[in-house]
Structure formats: C-alpha cells, structure tokens
Design a protein around this nucleic acid. Structure first.
Length: 227
DNA sequence: GCCAACGTTGGC
DNA sequence: GCCAACGTTGGC
C-alpha cells in the first residue's frame, strides 16, 4: 500500500523546522553518508540554481484510490481526494520506507510528480501534482492513533519526512500500468525512454524519480491512442 | 485472495 | 555482519 495521505492541509504558517537529514537508509549496506562536514571551504549550498547535479527533477508517487481499511482506518487517497482539499494541497504523509523518504527529501519546490494509483482495479498514472513544500517532519509518526504511527521514532530525532503537494491536473487520459509496461518491455528490447523506469525496476518503491526522458515520454502518451 | 519480490528485524 | 524469518507492497 502506498502511503496514505491524510486530508490534512498543512497550514502554511510557520516554517517547520526541517528535520535534519539524519540517517541514511539502514537498508542495504550501511553506507555512511559523508554527510555535511566537508572539510575546508565548506560551502553549504551552492547557490547555482540547482544545487546537486545528481538530483532528479521529476517524480512518481503512489497512493491508493480505493477504500481499504488498515486498523479500522480507511487509507483511501486518490487524486480526486487531493483535488478536494483546500487549495488542492495536502501533505504526503505515511511514507515509511527509507528510500522513498530519501527521495522525498530531495524534492524541490516547484517540481512535478505523477500521481499514481496503486493497489486498485486498474493501476496507473492519474494526474500531475506539484511539490509546494519541501520535506519536513511527518507528524503522523508520533500519533498513536495514526495508521503509520512509529513507536521507534522520537520527536528529538524524527525518522520520517513528508512534503506538501498540490494538484495540478488530471491526465488527458488515464495511463494504465499495463500500457506503461508494454512500452517498458519494448524499450528494454529495442531501446527507448522507459527501459529503466523505476516503476518496473523498483516496483515496490512508493516514491520514485523519473528522468526527464521518462517524464516527457509518459506525458506524450496522453495524446496518443492507448497501446 | 494469492503470492513474488523485496525490505526489515533480530539472533547469533 | 550474516542471514533466516518475517512483514509489506502491490500486481494480478
């Protein structure tokens, strides 16, 4: 299941303290990031427009558009639910996977993300949203009542982050996973933009990056006949 | 509802 | 630090 997004609209008042980029995923290997300290002329942020060259600029985020109850709570949150929120904006809370979290921490305001419908009759890309607030502490990790409460996370050192996203538009036509998969297989054999798409190579990642080529190709499908 | 893939946990 | 057991994701 995708992260469940609550319908909370985050009040845009105070700038929340940004959770410092604490740990790196304990996953795979224990790579210690050479975090912060750069000896010598430590230039925090390179002012040049886009800081890290390694950063991605397009994303795909999964959520379940159909009702499903987890601990008695409905985790349904489809693109229509986002659209209904005040300002058509909501926080993408509930992500409890380090890689997905780390990708969210890389997100920059203004970047676009596909809203992907997962675990439903017809999975696929439903629309587009924009990152309107960069990562900050996901408060649901401390909420015992929340489906994604994490008893191991302490307020002094929060584990999980979220971003705010704003509805942009619904796709001109729904782009089903099955269609994307056909292109993916085709491109894998003969080459093409979707040959390495994370949706297929990292199937369980709920927040994933897309290259510009992947992103543009998917967008171009809107104006094509379904494959 | 099944189950493959894969992430996480914990014993050693 | 390895790895088996376990839990979760998410397509089908």
């Amino acid at each position: 299941m995708p992260p469940k997004k609550k319908a909370q609209v985050v009040k845009k008042t105070a700038k929340s303290e940004k959770g410092d980029d604490g740990e790196t995923a304990p996953s795979g290997g224990k790579r210690k990031t050479a975090a912060s300290v750069d000896r010598g002329g430590n230039k925090q942020k390179i002012p040049s427009s886009s800081a890290d060259s390694s950063l991605h600029c397009h994303w795909l985020m999964k959520s379940e558009p159909e009702s499903r109850f987890e601990n008695g709570i409905d985790v349904k949150f489809g693109i229509e639910d986002l659209k209904k929120l005040p300002d058509q904006t909501g926080c993408w809370d509930g992500v409890r996977n380090y890689q997905a979290r780390n990708f969210m921490r890389q997100m920059k305001e203004g970047q676009l993300a596909f809203f992907y419908h997962s675990n439903c009759k017809e999975p696929g890309i439903a629309g587009l949203m924009k990152i309107v607030k960069e990562s900050y502490v996901d408060h649901t990790q401390f909420d015992r009542k929340d489906v994604h409460y994490d008893a191991s996370s302490k307020p002094e050192n929060p584990k999980w982050s979220m971003v705010d996203v704003q509805y942009q538009r619904t796709m001109k036509r729904y782009i089903p996973l099955s269609e994307l998969k056909k292109y993916h297989l085709q491109h894998r054999d003969k080459g093409g933009p979707l040959k390495d798409m994370a949706l297929f190579t990292r199937a369980r990642l709920s927040v994933q990056p897309l290259t510009t080529e992947e992103f543009d190709f998917v967008l171009s499908l809107e104006d094509k006949e379904p494959l």
